[in-house]
Amino acid sequence: MTEFEPRIITFLCNWCSYGAADLAGVSRFQYPPNMRIIRIPCSGRVSVKMVLHAIRSGADGVWISGCHPGDCHYIEGNFYARRKFVLLKELLEYTGLEPGRLQFSWISSAEGVKFAEVAQQVIADIRALGPAGKLVKQLPEVA
Rank of each mutant, 00 (worst) to 15 (best):
M1Q: 02
M1R: 01
F4I: 08
E5S: 06
R7I: 06
I8M: 12
I8R: 13
I9S: 13
L12W: 10
L12K: 14
N14K: 10
C16F: 04
C16D: 14
S17W: 07
G19D: 07
A21D: 12
A21Y: 15
L23Q: 15
L23H: 07
G25T: 10
V26L: 08
V26K: 14
R28K: 14
F29E: 07
Q30C: 07
Q30K: 11
Y31V: 02
Y31W: 11
R36N: 12
I38C: 01
I38A: 13
I38H: 11
R39V: 13
I40H: 12
P41K: 03
C42A: 07
G44D: 06
G44T: 07
G44L: 07
R45H: 10
V46H: 00
V46G: 00
S47C: 08
S47M: 01
V48I: 11
K49N: 06
H53D: 15
I55W: 01
I55R: 01
S57I: 06
G58W: 15
A59E: 11
D60H: 00
D60Y: 00
V62M: 09
V62P: 01
W63T: 05
I64N: 01
G66M: 06
C67Q: 09
H68R: 01
H68E: 13
P69V: 02
P69F: 13
G70D: 01
D71Y: 07
H73P: 03
H73K: 09
I75E: 07
E76G: 15
G77L: 14
N78L: 03
A81G: 10
A81W: 10
R82L: 01
R83C: 05
K84R: 07
K84Y: 11
K84D: 01
F85N: 04
L88N: 04
L88V: 08
E90P: 10
T95L: 15
E98T: 00
P99C: 03
P99Y: 05
G100N: 09
L102W: 13
Q103I: 10
Q103V: 13
Q103N: 12
Q103Y: 09
Q103F: 13
F104K: 01
F104T: 00
S105E: 11
W106E: 15
I107P: 14
S109D: 06
S109L: 13
A110C: 07
A110L: 15
E111K: 14
K114F: 08
K114V: 05
K114M: 11
F115H: 05
F115E: 03
F115R: 12
E117C: 03
V118N: 03
V118H: 08
V118M: 11
Q120G: 08
Q120Y: 14
D125N: 04
D125S: 02
D125Q: 05
I126D: 15
I126F: 15
A128Q: 02
L129Q: 13
P131Y: 01
A132W: 15
V136I: 13
Q138S: 14
L139R: 08
L139E: 12
L139A: 10
P140Q: 02
P140T: 09
A143R: 04
